[in-house]
Amino acid sequence: MEDINLDKYKSAWKAEQSFDEEKLSRERIMAFMGSASKSISGLFRRSLIMDIVMKSLLAFSSGGLLLLYSDQGRLLPVIATTVLLVIICIVLQVRTCGRIPGAKDSGQNTRALLHSYVDFYSRSFVPSLITASLTGPLVLVFGSLYYFFFKYGTVPPLQLADHLVFGTFILVSFLLSAFVQVKNFNFHIGQLKESLSEIEQDTLTDSRLRFYRKVKNRNMIIYSIILITGLLLLILFLI
């Protein structure tokens, strides 16, 4: 069998002139410098900004609700609690946005950069996606409150069937949004994990595996708290 001399290919690679001859014009480079990023950081940032905008609109519209229901002492605390929840969500999302690994981290070594992405996703981003998934149910609640006021002047007494339909819509909207977002970002982050485990194949330690398990478990507790809080608010609203 013929032995392949890799040095021959290395010399050909180094002697290849076409790479240096291929030129991008200054105008084209400048257009690229001002373009939108297609990286995972760009995706994270756009998704968070979109959610912050949506929640800010909700916060503004809540002013109208507080005004409309100002004379209905029974509902005012529920609306105020929901508004507080929206504001807390906005603050959380803004903080997460500031933690996204970005251009400042690009000069690190590859292993450190991939770690920063995977750590960020494990620690901050999945809880943030769950927070984002509350937007749909909140739009539904606010929309219903507006509808009830203009139709009946208050929230009418609801039957068991109404509770079930309303609750199901809220749950489905939350779960669908959470599922789509987590699945989508898991797909992207999975590729980075693949590269990280390729780099760490000789050094991936038990403590690192334990760390990821711990982060995953902690996040599960956070999701559960958010879900239970959401359900409690829903029950409070419906009583």
Binding site: K38, S39, N109, T110, L114
Partner: peptide
């Protein structure tokens, strides 16, 4: 371009460019 402000000129431009470009290629999903 975005990471250029963090380039401290401690290494050659080409070394820094290699690192950032490779990191971008590796992390583009």
């Amino acid at each position: 371009w975005k990471s250029y402000p963090s380039f401290k000129h401690e290494s050659a431009f080409s070394t820094w460019m290699y690192r950032v470009a490779l990191n971008t290629a590796l992390s583009l999903t």
